[in-house]
């Protein structure tokens, strides 16, 4: 079963066409990448998948539901079953890190305070933050820490579907590799399906099962890392050349 299916999606801002007929599909338990040059519309496509941006034409199915024609009740159910990490963290600025992570748990479960606190302490360490960072506010932490805290919040409910927008950008290389290990481990143990935007070639190589490259408003390539040699596009040539020469 396809967890996500994008069919002939066109996106337009004013007069500017960002996507012109995108097709792609994400399978269950897959780590799926969205790649492409800056401004090609990766974030926008992801926002369309999570119902933040209207779709001009075409359709997107997430967990079997057409997100453009979904009832509010089903939409709410979808929102509870996925986690989203925004490109810049998007933490709630008036809550500290611990409260940010605990928020979905407090809102959607009746678990006891003690259990929730345990979960928060665990998720903090899982993404590489220290429990002593728990009471810092978003304005008091670095960009990389915001990314980690945002990831911890996205993971708070152990969602089956995870959207990550540039999760490793702004992280030091050690944290980035730890992140790669973490998502592989979570995918295996929890059966996660992950859609992520990334420019990190190591991450792409090590974690992604398949990826789509958006270039020039279209999908320039969809498939795994091995098949990239046969694809033709300026972006692909430049981006993957160095790596393949080594």
């Amino acid at each position: 079963m396809d967890v996500i299916r994008v069919e002939n999606v066109k996106t337009v801002f004013g007069k500017k066409v960002v996507h012109d007929g995108l097709f792609l599909s994400v399978k269950e338990r897959e780590i799926y990448g969205l790649l492409g040059p800056s401004g090609c519309g990766k974030t926008t496509l992801m926002r369309e998948m999570v119902m933040l941006e209207p779709i001009h034409s075409g359709s997107i199915y997430v967990l079997g539901e057409n997100v453009a024609k979904i009832s509010e009740k089903k939409a709410q159910k979808l929102r509870e079953s996925w986690g989203v990490l925004f490109q810049f963290g998007a933490l709630f600025s008036s809550l500290n890190i611990a409260e940010n992570i605990a928020r979905p748990l407090v809102e959607y479960t009746t678990l006891s305070k003690k259990t929730i606190e345990e979960v928060v302490a665990f998720k903090l360490q899982l993404v590489g933050l220290k429990p002593s960072d728990a009471y810092l506010y978003p304005s008091q932490i670095s960009g990389g820490m915001k990314k980690k805290a945002g990831l911890a919040r996205a993971l708070a409910m152990d969602p089956k579907l995870l959207f990550l927008d540039e999760p490793t950008s702004g992280l030091d290389p050690i944290s980035a590799r730890e992140f790669d290990r973490l998502i592989l481990q979570l995918r295996e143990l929890l059966g996660l399906t992950i859609v992520m935007v990334s420019h990190d070639i190591r991450s792409i190589k090590d974690t992604m099962d398949r990826f789509a490259i958006i270039d020039n408003k279209k999908i320039a390539y969809e498939g795994d890392y091995a098949g990239i040699a046969n694809a033709k596009s300026d972006f692909i040539d430049t981006f993957f050349k160095e790596e393949n020469e080594q």
């Binding site: 611990a98 302490a121 360490q125 429990p131 009471y135 143990l189 929890l190």
Partner: peptide, 21 residues
């Protein structure tokens, strides 16, 4: 065995509680 590995992950971090405020 798979469940055991999930439990292993849950046991991985020694600090179980947030420091008191």
């Amino acid at each position: 065995e798979k469940i055991e590995r999930t439990l292993e992950l849950a046991r991985k971090y020694p600090i179980k509680e947030l420091p008191s405020k």
